[in-house]
């Protein structure tokens, strides 16, 4: 039987209203045969985790351009671990200074995609992390 499509949540946390990047990634993942649930703007960390649970997704992508990644990403990770969902791979995309990347990886984030990352690279890393 053919394998079922992967389900991916793409989320925009916090007050940052810029989602061109998130929409590009949503389209790229769709083109790669995935089912992408986009939350829309201004989600709280707990709303993101709730959506991931309700939609039973294989991975979560968080898009942040506001610079608040050091506050919002740890919060999402904390709630995920609290609910025993640490096995869901989490990715971060957006403007993340190089020095902060390691900090996010230490929290359990699987990949951080900065400006200029090709969409095929994003698809590859997500597929690898899920399989």
């Amino acid at each position: 039987m053919m394998s079922s499509p992967l389900r991916i949540l793409v989320a925009k946390p916090g007050l940052d209203g810029h989602d061109r990047g998130a929409k590009v990634v949503v389209r790229a993942l769709r083109e790669a045969g995935m089912e992408v649930i986009y939350t829309g703007l201004r989600q709280s960390p707990s709303m993101i985790v709730e959506a991931a649970i309700e939609e039973d997704v294989n991975a979560i992508g968080i898009s942040i351009l506001s610079g608040a990644h050091q506050i919002l990403v740890p919060k999402v990770m904390e709630i995920l671990f609290e609910k025993d969902l640490g096995n869901i791979p989490v990715f971060v995309g957006g403007i993340v200074p190089e020095n902060d990347v390691e900090e996010l990886i230490d929290l359990g984030v699987v990949g951080v995609f900065g400006p200029g990352t090709s969409t095929s690279e994003i698809v590859r890393v997500i597929r690898d992390a899920i399989s």
């Binding site: 499509p5 949503v26 389209r27 993942l29 769709r30 083109e31 790669a32 045969g33 995935m34 089912e35 992408v36 649930i37 986009y38 939350t39 829309g40 959506a51 939609e55």
Partner: peptide, 15 residues
């Protein structure tokens, strides 16, 4: 779902 790639954008939650 896309007939070609099987992918889909599920955007109803946004509303």
């Amino acid at each position: 779902s896309s007939q070609f790639t099987k992918g889909a954008v599920l955007g109803d939650r946004i509303r």
